[in-house]
Design a protein around this nucleic acid. Structure first.
Lengths: 249, 249
DNA sequence: CGTACAGTTGATGATCATCAATCCCTGTGG
DNA sequence: CCACAGGGATTGATGATCATCAACTGTACG
């Protein structure tokens, strides 16, 4: 279904030679701008790649399940995953989507907290905890970069709860689209946003019903802010109003 | 920088007992149980205390404001703070409450993300970023403990968005009370829960209106699950149903 | 004892969840 | 190439829940 279409998202990434794995975040120390930057040096990437294994996952693959024994973390080279938990009520809450240059697999007392499943085909670097701690000892600077990245993920989690805290469905959807926009092209200014995940996933992420997402999409279109090009792409038509809505919080 | 008026240096008897500062979290590596544990060794605490300054804040003091220059992190020895952001709509969203043995002050590009204000009088250890990085180099094990703590805070942030994701006000309130219960006595089994913050703060944390919190409290009482003893204490009357409600998610 | 603020209670309207029916896209097989 | 099946997505109708506005009560503190 989305297999071929959604793998190639905007942003001609790749160039998988020696520049991986990448780890991107906004550092907490003062930097030039407020944009995310690559945290790892070439030397650090070389160190990392020696401790890691490259893994390939087809779309919709479970990478690991919540509450199972955890032994490694993952850095995405290419693709998108969702990190979620199925609640007692039968509802599913997606805690986060992770993209290229993101880190996931943080555990609690030796067990994964969330289930992680690929949304698109994914290429990732898997690093065992043993290798990671050994790496931290050998190259302490890398540990600081990981700390930096985790803080970044923490900020994103806080942002997520601000999204969910909104009462209006269209506002929540707009905020998600803005996230996806940043992912699509970290620097470019294209009007097109890739939406690799299903409506159902979006609903689980936004804390809405599937129908509410559908209606919110419709309303965004009717108001002339965006245009849906198929199910996995959105085009911004009125950036002004779109940004205002997404920022209103 | 820090707001000058709101900060008062230690006026009383700080006299650290030697067991401070403490830093508590559930490690991500496998441990004996799933309860939070003290992360720092005695030696590490001694190192830390040498790089830190003890600060005392009266209740309702702003420790720092969002978007101001950040230069240090804080470890709470005693007291409660709230970490929040005021949104464009005029609403306030509390991202987290922090308690004794918690860490706060993580920044983004050299600026604090949230405003932090004390709820009760607070005694805290302030550690400048400079001292912290220097400390990490001198004692690499401490960096791992900080990483561990940040991961812990990340999990709590994810849990927060699960709370907010609930649709029913009573359920959200119950989940907050359960958090406060864990804080009250990490090991004890008392029926009483301390609720140091105001209804308004609770509302901002749960993503509800102040009135909704009030009505939810009333309903919890009418259903016989809890009893409110004054405004800052709750007594569990029917733990069974209370846990069920809080866990339903 | 009075003021100010925190909290409660009530009435009304807006928004979303839910149930149900239909549409549409995609992949499959004739 | 087309028909069909199945899951994803859309649309519609109804009810439940919370926000909001407003009035009131309780409590802390001088």
């Amino acid at each position: 279904m989305m297999s071929t279409q959604s793998i190639r998202r905007g942003g001609g990434t790749a160039a998988p030679t020696g520049r991986e794995p990448e780890l991107m975040a906004i550092p907490f120390l003062k930097t030039a701008g407020t944009e995310p930057v690559e945290l790892l040096s070439d030397a650090q990437r070389q160190q990392l790649v020696r401790s890691a294994a490259v893994r390939h996952f087809p779309a919709r693959t479970i990478v690991y399940r919540a509450d199972t024994a955890a032994d490694s973390v993952f850095v995405i080279a290419e693709g998108v995953v969702k990190s979620y938990r199925d609640l007692a009520s039968g509802r599913r809450r997606i805690a986060a989507f992770f993209f290229a240059r993101d880190l996931f697999g943080l555990a609690e007392a030796g067990h994964y907290v969330n289930t992680v499943q690929t949304v698109t085909p994914v290429r990732a670097y898997e690093i065992s905890f043993d290798a990671l701690t050994e790496l931290f000892q050998r190259e302490p600077a890398i540990e600081m970069q990981f700390l930096c990245k985790v803080v970044h993920v923490l900020r994103e989690a806080q942002h997520h709860s601000i999204i969910i805290g909104r009462r209006d469905a269209v506002g929540r959807l707009a905020m998600l689209l803005r996230l996806l926009q940043k992912q699509s092209l970290p620097r470019g200014r294209s009007r097109d946003i890739a939406v690799p995940m299903s409506r159902s996933d979006i609903a689980s992420y936004l804390g809405l019903s599937l129908e509410a997402v559908s209606r919110a999409s419709r309303r965004l279109e009717l108001q002339g802010m965006v245009e849906f090009v198929g199910r996995h792409q959105v085009r911004i038509l009125d950036r002004q109003r779109f940004e205002t809505l997404a920022a209103a919080a």
